[in-house]
Design a protein around this nucleic acid. Structure first.
Lengths: 129, 129
DNA sequence: CCGTTGTAGATGCATTTGCATGTATCATGC
DNA sequence: GCATGATACATGCAAATGCATCTACAACGG
């Protein structure tokens, strides 16, 4: 828990120093960029990012206000919505990745060998079951 | 990050189900219970728990409102305060530990062998440097 | 002494989160 | 086809967090 807080704090700080939004935004942008047609239903983003439904709903509000995503109607289920990545969203994802990747390298990669990283990943995976 | 969120979420949920306060409260209570005279200066709690100064200040407000801690004047530096564990605080720490310990066992211990745990701990320690 | 700078802790204000509930739509069983 | 319960997403309100700043006191240099 302590390590996570320290590392996450350092990464968030790097993003903030670069005048970029917090990590949660990146997670959403990344999932959208990977999705077919660069669009997902909110509940799909929810599953992939582990964001709580109401938090995601408001995060999307903020992102939509910044024109990073756009909400569209979803045909075939009147309750559903599409969340679509915009051009600005795509470019934000790229800009965030530049900083985020460097930050991962500095705060994680630089401290671990490849086999450390694999070991850590395997141990954490055990906890997810 | 994902693993931490899942595990922390599960632990917080266990505490909430037992009608107990969040984990941050336990951290403070634990540090106080370990301290000489069961008292610490706010900045000492801050260092040990990694809580931000303003967050700790308000957490202490809440805990004081619940009579778990008491703030006292600190002689020798007029700016300083003592945060003192109360009887109710001591008993809350004990009650939380019962639930927390079981939760750690369920969400961490049950998934890891002893050598897994040591390995994980060693890897995380590498990240803290 | 006195002014300046530093440190401990508190607090006002904006933003974010959590929780419960609301609204709309869908699916199912009768 | 219509009540009943489930699902998708939004939202009002309270609580927690982040950020900047404030107050009070200490320390230091002249």
């Amino acid at each position: 828990m302590r390590t996570q807080r320290v590392v996450l704090g350092a990464i968030e700080q790097d993003l903030k120093s670069a005048a970029l939004p917090p990590l949660g935004w990146y997670d959403v942008l990344l999932e959208l960029s990977r999705a077919a047609d660069e669009r997902l239903r909110p509940y799909e983003i929810e599953e992939r990012t582990l964001l709580a439904q109401h938090n995601l709903s408001r995060l999307l509000d903020r992102m939509e206000r910044m024109n990073l995503v756009r909400r569209e109607a979803f045909d075939g289920d009147g309750r559903g919505r599409w969340v679509v990545l915009t051009e600005a969203g795509r470019s934000m994802q790229t800009r965030m990745w530049a900083v985020y990747a460097a930050s991962i390298q500095a705060h994680l990669g630089a401290h671990l060998t490849d086999s450390d990283a694999e070991g850590l990943s395997a141990l954490l995976a055990k906890l997810m079951r």
